[in-house]
Design a protein around this nucleic acid. Structure first.
Lengths: 126, 126
DNA sequence: CTTGACAAACGATATTTATAGTACTAATTA
DNA sequence: TAATTAGTACTATAAATATCGTTTGTCAAG
């Protein structure tokens, strides 16, 4: 009925950020990381990581004791896709209004923008 | 269990865009608008608009024949909130990496950015 | 006055997300 | 070796989303 979402929800992204940050993780690693911020059951984390595996965001391999998970897609790729989807969904694909929004909402100043464009320009000449 | 989402899903945003575009709408108006793009049942649209009403995005008033709906929140406010949530969720609240992403993904050129910053600067001097 | 059209109300259902308890299994340790 | 521990698998659940069919009510047209 509903098409399998493929986009990351808040909790899924929370897990992915931990995985990207640490490289190789067990369920327990992620569980304890999340526990520092909020209460959650071990099995909940396990289920979520299974979901993420099913969606193709994580892959696991058997180690001695527990499964070791790692990201199946790079952070930069996933973020890029999320930004793209967001711009498509909210701004019908054009990024300009998003930038306008960011500036108007004082989330970006002119100095920020200049600094960033300079940095990127140096990064990729021509 | 899951907290009521408050953020707009794809389909909900689709409806809100139609409402913002037309001001005053009946369920039938929205239904026929969506039908131009995809197959959907009248009652589905009705249910979704009831959900949007429950979330506080739409308000209705009784007219002669059918309810007339209108937006309870302005487009600009909703979009602002969506952008803010997205930046918080994906970029931990800092907008700079989002801009970097947009430029690197060629969704914004330096000319775009300059044009926009100039336009906004004229809009709000000082 | 009956009938047809349309709108709302109601109810039903499948799916995903997010949550967690319980049971089974393997390994470590006392 | 028995008991504890850690890990997975399995099962179950509630809420929200998204989808419609059916029923009910009203109003206009025959």
């Amino acid at each position: 009925m509903r098409p399998r979402s493929k986009t990351l929800t808040e909790q899924e992204l929370e897990i992915m950020k931990i995985v990207w940050g640490r490289g190789q993780v067990t369920v327990r690693d992620v569980y304890e990381d999340i526990l520092r911020r909020r209460k959650v059951a071990y099995t909940t984390v396990m289920t979520m990581m299974k979901i993420l595996e099913g969606k193709g965001y994580l892959k696991k391999r058997a180690a001695e004791r527990a499964y070791v998970y790692q990201a199946a897609r790079s952070k930069s790729l996933v973020i890029k896709t999320m930004v793209r989807d967001f711009v498509n969904r909210v701004f019908n694909g054009s990024a300009e209004p998003l930038l306008v929004q960011l500036v108007k909402d004082r989330r970006l100043s002119r100095e920020d923008i200049e600094k960033i464009t300079r940095a990127i320009q140096e990064d990729e000449p021509c």
